[in-house]
Structure formats: structure tokens, C-alpha cells
Design a protein around this nucleic acid. Structure first.
Lengths: 205, 205
DNA sequence: TTTGTTTTTAACCAAATGGTTAAACTGAAT
DNA sequence: ATTCAGTTTAACCATTTGGTTAAAAACAAA
């Protein structure tokens, strides 16, 4: 059994190259030779440092999952008021996705490919998204009468949808509306306030 | 040059099988032998009926694109009032996606893979999404003062996000919230009214 | 300088892959 | 029954692919 080699220049080079290639080509589409070329190394080194293609991919997936889900949990489970939570989530989540705009598409691709594997086995128990605290909080606010009656799941879906989907649809949006990258970034910056405002306008009594 | 064979039993079988395999595995991940197995035919027949893997894929893509974009255009370009348009879009779009729940993920995958190819070359000029009429309508309503000031693009993104993203995130939603397929369908049925209501509550003066 | 360990290289491997080929089969028309 | 055209089959092909192997190179310690 090949153990993972300790962190070195070459190992890091491989990871950086693998990330680039996997993100564009996906796991099936990515070729080990392409990754080696991208890293500027001999292909056999990939196998010296990583057991096989799948293991290499899992390392990348785990690294990326760490940027996608923890935000969800830390904010959802905090004791902040609901509206503040929505504002905070939109702002911080969009910041994270602005820094990693490929991330939603990458995560959704893997999760759709094999949910149990990627949300189960590979990730294990840590850092799994857990919406229950927020759902309960929404329910409580509805009961208190501070917001209009809305299903907690529906509200959660609205929030996630508006924060995440634009990054997935980015190439389509850019092409059909005729925006460039910078304009898209600005648009998403605006959404940090626009989304919470839109939501709060809708649900506030 | 192999012309596409005229529509026959075998041709249809291939298309049905190809759709299944391409949808799950994507283009790179799908194997011609897998498609042949799924269709219950000899692999060489794939090449008798379709020039190559790429051409077969394009046929499938075009078929699926016909379910994804035309709704967008017909409703966006109609002369209906804005609120009616939003209601109609949400209802009809969600109906279409309920019938083809894999479709958003499939389309977004291809568009992210190579936007110019899939939104350009393969689709040609027909049936391309064209949001400009709706954007202009939103702008007009803002100016008339019937809705609160909102950027047309932002409102469009909100509408599309809330209608489309849940289908993309379906496996994640099901797993993390603990729903089954039927419950998800019900949830999306509710969204046919919930989304327009949510939006109208937010923007109406 | 020598020795031992680690890293890198280039050649190699078996299997998989998309595609080709020619013969056999099938169905329709004469 | 024969001929022709279209469809299907099974074998085959060249290339690609992920991975293996052993030797060379590099590095570190004594």
C-alpha cells in the first residue's frame, strides 16, 4: 500500500495541477497525463505520491468541500437573530464563492454523481451540512408571528438558491446577458445586500 | 461520411439508451459499450447509426435543450403583465423540470464545460434563451413605480435561481433534510405558487 | 567518499476505448 | 427462388489510459 507521501513541493504541485484539471474535466474526463503535464512532472510520480486517480480526486474533493459547507453550518447553528443570520450568510457565502467561483458547480457535480459516496463515505461525519437548527429557528419565528408564515424548507431553499445558483449559471448568464467577468463579480457583490433585503422584504410582517 | 440513419427502432433504442447513460456519466464518462449494453445491441451499431460519440451526444443535447430553453423565451417574450409572467413562468417551468428533473444539472454541466460550443455551435441560433424583453419589462415597471426599485438582472437571477437550483441540489436536499422523492415532488409543486408569491411580496409597492 | 534513503525517470504493461471491416443475416421486390 | 439493399454481427484495430517496474539521479548523514 502506497502511503500518501509527506507534503513536499512535488506533492503540492500535483495537488494544484490536479485541482485545475479535475475542475474543468471532471474525474472521468481528467487524464493522469494531463495532470502530470499541468504539474510539469513525469506521470509515474502521480502514483508515487498518490495511490491512484480516485484517491487523488478524493483529496481534492475534501479540500474543496471544506470551502463549501462549513460556512453553512457555523452560521446556521449560531444564536444570531434570523434576519442577521440571513444577512451574514449571504455576505460570507458569496465572499467565499467569489474567491472560488467554480466551487458550486464542482460540488453539485460530484454530489449528483454519487451522493452517498461524496456526502457519506468520502466526507465522513465532519463538516456535513446540517440545516436543522436554522429550520427550527424559522419555524419559531413563524410561530412568534415575527415573519409571515412560510415553510422553513422553502425559505431555506430560496436563500441557498439565490446565493449559489448564479455561480453555477455564470457562463450562461455572461453569454446571454452580455457581461464580462468583472461585471459578474460586481453583480454578485451587490447580491450580498440584495438577497437579504429581497428576502426580508418578502417575509417581514 | 455516415449520414444519420432514418428513424427506426434501433435508432430510437440507441437514443433512449444514450440519454440514460450520458445523463448519469456525462459525455467523457459514458462508454459506447455501456450505451450498447443499455440498448441491448451490438456496439458496432452505434457507429452504423451515428457518426461518432460526439455526434450522438449532440443529438441528445439538442433534444434536452428543447425542454430547457423554449419555455424561458415564450413566456419572457409574451405581452403578459409582469406578475402574471412570473407566476406563469414558475408554474410551467417547474412542471417541465418535474417531468425531467435531471435536466438542469445536465444543461449546466455542458454549458460549464464549453459554453461557446453548447450555447453556440451545437444549438445554433434557434431556441437560444433571450432575456432582454423581460429585462426591459422589469425596468419599465420600476420606472412606472408599480414595483420597488430593483435591478432587472437581479430579479431575473432570483426567479431563475429559485426555480432551477432545487433540482440541481436535489440529492443533497434529500439527504440532508431526510426527504424522499415523493416529498421532494410535493415540495416543488408547492413552489409553483410559493416562488411567485415570495417574489411579488418582495417587490410589490 | 561511501552508504542508505528518497525521488525521479523512461520504458513498459494489460486493459479499455472509440471506431473499422467484412461477412452474415434479414426483409422486400421481382 | 433469386437478387438487392439494408441491418446486424463478431472480430479486429490503433490508440489511449491508469498503473507498474527497475534503474538512475538526488539528497542526506556518517
Amino acid at each position: 500500500m502506497v502511503k500518501e507521501r509527506k507534503s513536499t513541493d512535488t506533492g503540492e504541485k500535483i495537488l494544484a495541477a490536479a485541482k485545475k484539471v479535475f475542475l474543468v474535466k471532471g474525474m472521468s474526463g481528467a487524464r493522469m497525463q494531463d495532470i502530470a503535464d499541468e504539474a510539469g512532472i513525469n506521470k509515474a510520480l502521480l502514483h508515487y505520491y498518490f495511490k491512484n486517480k480516485e484517491k487523488l480526486f478524493e483529496v481534492i474533493f475534501l479540500e474543496e468541500a471544506k470551502k463549501f459547507f462549513p460556512k453553512i453550518n457555523s452560521i446556521f447553528e449560531s444564536e444570531l437573530p434570523l434576519f442577521v443570520k440571513i444577512e451574514k450568510f449571504a455576505a460570507e457565502y458569496i465572499d467565499e464563492m467569489q474567491a472560488n467561483p467554480y466551487l458550486p458547480m464542482f460540488m453539485m457535480t460530484q454530489i449528483n454523481q454519487d451522493t452517498d459516496k461524496f456526502l457519506g463515505t468520502v466526507m465522513g461525519k465532519n463538516n456535513q451540512p446540517n440545516p436543522h437548527h436554522l429550520l427550527a429557528q424559522i419555524e419559531k419565528e413563524v410561530k412568534k408571528g415575527t415573519i409571515k408564515p412560510i415553510s422553513p424548507i422553502q425559505l431555506l431553499m430560496n436563500l441557498l438558491s439565490m446565493c449559489i445558483f448564479p455561480f453555477i449559471a455564470k457562463p450562461m448568464i455572461l453569454k446571454k446577458i452580455g457581461l464580462d467577468d468583472l461585471q459578474f463579480r460586481r453583480l454578485m457583490e451587490q447580491r450580498k445586500q440584495e438577497i437579504p433585503q429581497f428576502i426580508i422584504n418578502s417575509i417581514k410582517k
